[in-house]
Design a protein around this nucleic acid. Structure first.
Length: 462
DNA sequence: GCCG
DNA sequence: CGATACG
DNA sequence: CGGCCGATATCG
């Protein structure tokens, strides 16, 4: 069994903003020539942002959306004749969502053909195409257009379980420095057009956490990916009003940032010596608010002071030692390579003798708000390997060396990637529970079972 | 911090 | 175990 | 107002 399976995150009921940019609209969507999935997304967005979506055209309908004029044949003629609202191309919707604004409808108006109902020439002119020669038929034109405009709907569900592909462990893969994520904004490369905001929010995460305000910190933590994935640069608060996780306060902050370029609240924090110090301490892997405060009150004021403190745990010591390295992001393609390697290593180390086994948790986290983050971590435990998101780290050098050795024997160089393999094994309830009745209750036992020489913590050179 |  | 921490 | 992530992972 996997030590952990992906959490199937239930779709949080998205908040509905009756004053969103689509407010007042009563909409009918012509499903023809549209992928059901896209339709579903649009419907959801419309609802979310103040529109009403009907299953049929009625008197109250204000807007009908269609992919093209032929699609309108699906709509009852009589309804269409009486219809006084606007007939629009779906493109309008897409562009509104992309820009976050309610755009002018005029360029997107689709005329209904009262009679004859053949392909309308005017329509083609309303929406002009960059390469008309490529347009064999109207439908082709729309498809063409749609492909260029639309971004694939990224379904950020992490792949879970054993790797099913990518068996090759050639160096070729490692050296393959292709930037696979430059062009298409997707899950793996969010547009990130609002770094001015997310950067500041990121600092607030650390600050509030260091101050012990975990809840508040977590709010910013959740807000960042929401902002990160926006396909447009925020220029006004209005573009952000409807977003989940962005409430009054964050809106104010965003407003201040986009208008003044800074956030006085952050600057205030950064002027405070104590806040600055404990925030710094809190950035050390393994040091949280409680410890940070304790260290501060002990009189420590910088990282060098900490190095001489003997109260640090093993993890914290490593966190300190690799203060910068451990924050580095590992490119996805490298992580993928590592995973393959680690999987093999794990199999060798454990020889398939456990029921927790060597599983990989690979892909993007499905934790709330985290699914769009552009990062991947690797965590390696004695019995399991997690490819997880941001960093790989270790607390134990024995396994570290062993893995590194194996890695290098296969032509990988782990040093460059800042890969620190974890081996903070814990015994107890998380010991090896195995169908083959290998059971350990202490860390030492685990090591013995794994065939590692046991070293007391103080004997482990780091 | 946000949300219900 | 509770406390603490991470992403 | 009160509750709020993780079938969290680890440490002492």
């Amino acid at each position: 069994m996997a030590p952990r399976t992906a959490k199937s995150k239930k779709q949080s009921p998205l908040s509905i903003d009756p004053h969103g940019i689509f407010n007042g609209m009563v909409v009918f969507l012509v499903p023809m020539a549209i992928q059901p999935r896209r339709l579903q997304i649009w419907k959801q967005k419309l609802l979310q942002m103040g529109a009403v979506v009907d299953d049929s055209v009625s008197k109250r309908t204000t807007h009908i959306f269609a992919a093209n004029s032929s699609s309108l044949l699906q709509v009852n003629r009589d309804y269409l004749k009486r219809f006084k609202g606007k007939l629009l191309l779906y493109e309008w919707l897409e562009n509104c969502l992309q820009s976050g604004k309610r755009l002018s409808e005029e360029p997107y108006i689709l005329k209904s053909e009262p009679d004859g109902a053949d392909k309308s020439v005017e329509n083609s002119e309303k929406v002009h195409f960059e390469s008309p020669e490529a347009c064999l038929s109207e439908d082709d034109c729309f498809d063409h257009k749609r492909i260029k405009v639309s971004c694939e709907d990224p379904k950020p569900v992490g792949t879970v379980g054993n790797v099913d592909n990518q068996r090759s462990t050639d160096k070729r893969d490692m050296n393959n420095k292709i930037k696979d994520d430059d062009k298409i904004p997707s899950l793996y490369s969010p547009p990130d057009l609002n770094r001015n905001i997310t950067e500041i929010f990121g600092k607030l995460i650390d600050i509030y956490r260091a101050l012990g305000e975990e809840r508040r910190s977590f709010s910013y933590y959740k807000a960042i990916p929401v902002i990160e994935k926006l396909p447009y640069k925020i220029e006004s608060v209005d573009q952000v009003k409807h977003l989940p996780t962005i409430g009054k306060s964050m809106q104010d902050h965003i407003n201040e940032i986009v208008t003044t370029g800074k956030l006085s609240k952050l600057e205030h924090f950064e002027k405070d010596e104590k806040v600055r110090t404990i925030t710094l301490f809190g950035e050390v892997w393994g040091i949280g608010p409680a410890t940070a405060l304790k260290l501060y009150e002990k009189g420590h004021r910088n990282l060098d002071d900490l190095k001489n403190d003997d109260s640090l745990t093993n993890s914290q010591r490593i966190g300190l030692q690799f203060f910068h390295d451990i924050k580095k992001r590992i490119p996805r393609h490298e992580v993928k390579d590592m995973e393959v390697l680690l999987q093999k290593v794990g199999e060798e180390v454990l020889q398939g003798g456990t029921d927790s086994g060597v599983d990989t948790y690979f892909g993007l986290c499905t934790y709330p708000g985290q699914e769009q983050r552009h990062r991947i971590d690797l965590k390696v435990y004695p019995r399991s390997i997690y490819a997880f998101g941001q960093i790989a780290w270790t607390g134990n050098d024995v396994l570290n060396r062993r893995l590194r050795l194996l890695a290098e024997s296969k032509g990988y160089r782990l040093d460059d990637t800042g890969l620190y393999l974890a081996a903070q094994s814990s015994g107890g309830k998380r010991g090896l529970k195995s169908s083959t009745s290998v059971s350990c209750t202490t860390e030492k036992e685990v090591f013995e079972v794994l065939g590692f020489p046991w070293l007391e913590p103080h004997e482990r050179n780091l």
